[in-house]
Simulated assay, not measured.
Amino acid sequence: MKNLLLLLNIIPILAFSQAPEIPKIDFKTNAEEVNRYVDLFGLKDAEALVVRLAYSILPHIEPESNYIVYFKNGKVRRYRINESAQPMASTKIKRIRVKKKKYSAYWAFLNLCVSEGKFNIDQSQLATLGEKANSWKNAISGGQTYTFGLYQGENYTEYKSFLPSMFTDEEYPGFEDKRKLIYVMEGFKTLTED
């Protein structure tokens, strides 16, 4: 974690010499229509890259999701969506201001993740726990599910993993993919902490 914080402090210095440009991402899936976040956030740029971070405790309920939006013009926006567990309660969307001086850190981390292949994660490995984990089933029933998504135009990639930090030991199947997911999510989460 200390290395990640050090990296996030150094990256903005290196990034000032580069013009921000949305890097080419190898998406896993194509949809028939532009992602729903373009309408939901009222984005004028349908090709903006949306990064989604969510941590949930209850199945299918993510009380809070954080979004980072990268635009072709170099700008960055953030949004937070709060969803209620109550079926009739409305979803609340909040736009969070990003200071211009922090844009370079956001862009640098995105480019680093793409250049190092951090978004190339095998979803099937994220769900693998192996035989050693069977004894943990009762102990971890209250753990978090990590959800990470990338959305651009009609392309998207989503990853989910239940308690990946518990299974990053080399003895567990899929530990490399779980480490990548944690690295990416914690890196973006660190950027959003003001």
Rank of each mutant, 00 (worst) to 15 (best):
L150F: 02
Y146M: 03
Q144S: 13
T128R: 15
L150K: 05
S141W: 11
Q144P: 03
C113N: 10
S141P: 04
N120T: 04
S115V: 12
Y146A: 07
A108Y: 09
L112M: 04
L126R: 07
A105G: 02
N120L: 05
Q152N: 10
F119Y: 11
K94W: 03
L129D: 09
T147Q: 15
E116V: 12
G130Y: 10
S115T: 09
S135W: 07
G117P: 01
K137N: 12
T147R: 14
S115R: 08
Q152H: 05
S90W: 03
Y151W: 15
K92L: 07
F109N: 02
T91L: 13
F119V: 01
N120S: 11
Q144K: 12
I121C: 03
Y103Q: 03
K94H: 05
A127Q: 10
I121Y: 01
E131L: 13
G130N: 06
A139W: 11
Y103P: 00
I121P: 04
A139I: 10
K137M: 10
A108K: 05
I93E: 03
S135P: 06
L110A: 00
G117Y: 02
Y151M: 12
F109Q: 04
A133D: 05
V98Y: 00
A127W: 07
R97E: 02
A139Y: 14
A133I: 05
V98L: 00
Y146N: 10
A89K: 07
S141D: 13
E116R: 15
